[in-house]
Design a protein around this nucleic acid. Structure first.
Lengths: 321, 321
DNA sequence: CATACATGTGTAATCGATTAACTACGCCCT
DNA sequence: AGGGCGTAGTTAATCGATTACACATGTATG
């Protein structure tokens, strides 16, 4: 910057004013400075700028798993929304591990992100409290924690789940296998509670960990237990369950019915296409980013609760008639 | 930091020394400082530190599309490798747009990443030159550019593609539809060149843009043109092609054969499972990260060329016998 | 006993920006 | 002509760390 100033025959203060579009400099001075910048190929040092202004124009996003398309879509939406407001997004991958999540959150705070979006790995509120104590704007996304005091953006699947339950029961299924998420996550618990609630005593629950492998194992257990229908509570476990069903040579929906929480672009391509509960991922990501930006600007955004929808495609068989 | 120093009755220099594990401070002083840090919940400001040391312990990764599982896996692998060496990764999403790619690269440079991994959207070398001119360590990943002067990490699909061609020809296909990537990307061009080369005059080529929608359109054109086999040059276009095939009620492999470049966890679940050319994504990501770290440490890593493999699963029909 | 040297800590310059406070210069008005 | 005022631009403090250099103390050496 000093070089630019010298080159243009002004002080660094003037260069800075030109850079930041401040009122002062004469059009003529401005021209000279811009020419010098161009000539020297100068680019301002974002670190120094942030240090001085205490604003990085950056949001942190800590998600459970980048390989899970659900989170990838969310990440993508967050990024789009953030960029349109002049913010960057730094993504952290917690890999469904509370420990790694905490590491990432701290790293992001150390780098002074202006705000943090978090999909908490567990419903333990201690990490959230730590962030709040540091005074950093925080919004929870997809999942919440016990006694959360910050805005939360999530999708409500209750309606879709009860509709699903009604159909399964109506079609005469009496042993319905539920491949549940971890009980220490809000989404894991709530979805399962709603579904088993509406299924009366017909549900058999096996807990997985939101990953493919656990989906296969759970499906195996449930099929062995005589289940005639399976509901996987997220898309990766759904993938695992589907693998197990195929491996056993079972036909969907003839031998077993299947529904999955979360949609995927390839679900419609299966034979039969898979019935899902689709979450509005893009809207969730955008809403979360908007809430966080509002929080950063000193407003108090409300919680956002979007609605997940049941999409019937054929993998439930007669339950869809 | 000043607070911590005061609290421990030392100077900031000493606090800094404790923090950085410098030789000097007495065990007793060290204890006092650590206690003060603990008590005040002090966390060092990474911005200030980086400004002073001109090292951010951060790598930039600019990829073409986060929603493409191929790149998501790469990103994941890069991150793992980087973290194990104490580095963070900031991911930028170019969305297959050269313009957005350039924007992201510049943003990352402004933030003074220690090095940059780039999957170039086009084979135009100007952006690469810009980065090199800035003296920032750079490694290209998956794709290269014309006259690249930096290390490149990629997968070689030639062998797999010629093997695939041999099988298709051997099975008597005479109109083979190739859904090609953009000709201004190295992977798009090379894969297509190799395949059409080995197919003699039997190939009909339609260019897509590595996205799902273009895959459907290309497939439609090729099917209308009488193709009895389709080869999609990346997984998203493969997804699109598959959709088109399904939409027309065609049976694989009876009515049409299909192979896709890039594997996906759900390909084996289709009926029939899809034959693919699988790239070693995880190894590519890790290798790229390692090369970049080597470059940062002043070494001169060689280009890395891994091998993609043909995985036969049934979607080629008699060509696989 | 004076000198040399090692050791632990403090002082202050520095990284590259922003910005409050100040200066210098003209212009207008009485 | 001189005081008041607006404007363009400069000077210097500051953000929060690192680190070369200086300094003080204690120990070994001639």
């Amino acid at each position: 910057m000093k070089d630019v100033a010298q080159h243009a025959g002004v002080s660094t203060a003037t260069v800075s004013r030109v850079l930041n579009g401040h009122a002062a400099p004469t059009p003529e001075t401005r021209e000279r400075v811009l020419a010098a910048i161009e000539e020297l190929g100068y680019r301002p040092n974002a670190l120094a700028r942030s240090l001085r202004t205490t604003s990085t124009q950056t949001l942190g996003l800590v998600i459970s798993d980048l390989l899970n398309p659900f989170f990838a879509e969310i990440a993508r939406a967050v990024e789009d929304e953030a960029r349109s407001h002049g913010y960057c997004v730094v993504i952290g991958n917690a890999d469904e591990s509370a420990e790694q999540e905490a590491t990432y959150v701290r790293t992001l705070l150390d780098r002074r992100v202006d705000g943090l979006l978090l999909c908490p790995a567990t419903d333990d509120p201690s990490l959230v409290r730590e962030v709040s104590a540091g005074g950093v704007p925080l919004v929870l996304l997809d999942r919440t924690v016990r006694g959360a005091t910050c805005p939360v953006v999530r999708a409500d699947g209750s309606e879709a789940l009860t509709a699903l339950a009604r159909r399964l029961v109506g079609a005469g299924h009496t042993r319905i296998g539920v491949i549940a998420g971890p009980p220490n996550t809000s989404t894991g618990r709530e979805r399962t509670d709603v579904l088993t609630g509406s299924l009366g005593g017909l549900a058999q629950v096996v807990h997985g960990d939101f990953r493919q492998e656990s989906g296969s194992q759970a499906a195996a257990k449930l099929i062995d237990g005589g289940a005639t229908a399976l509901v996987a509570m997220d898309n990766l476990m759904g993938l695992g369950a589907l693998g197990e069903v195929r491996a056993r040579g079972l036909q969907i929906p003839h031998d077993i019915a299947l529904a999955v929480f979360d949609d995927q672009p390839w679900f419609p391509l299966l034979d039969p296409p898979i019935t899902v509960i689709a979450q509005p991922t893009v809207e969730m990501g955008r809403a979360a980013a908007r809430s966080l930006l509002a929080l950063i600007n000193g407003q108090q955004p409300d919680d956002v609760r979007l609605t997940a929808k049941l999409v019937l495609r054929g993998s439930l068989g007669e339950a869809e008639l």
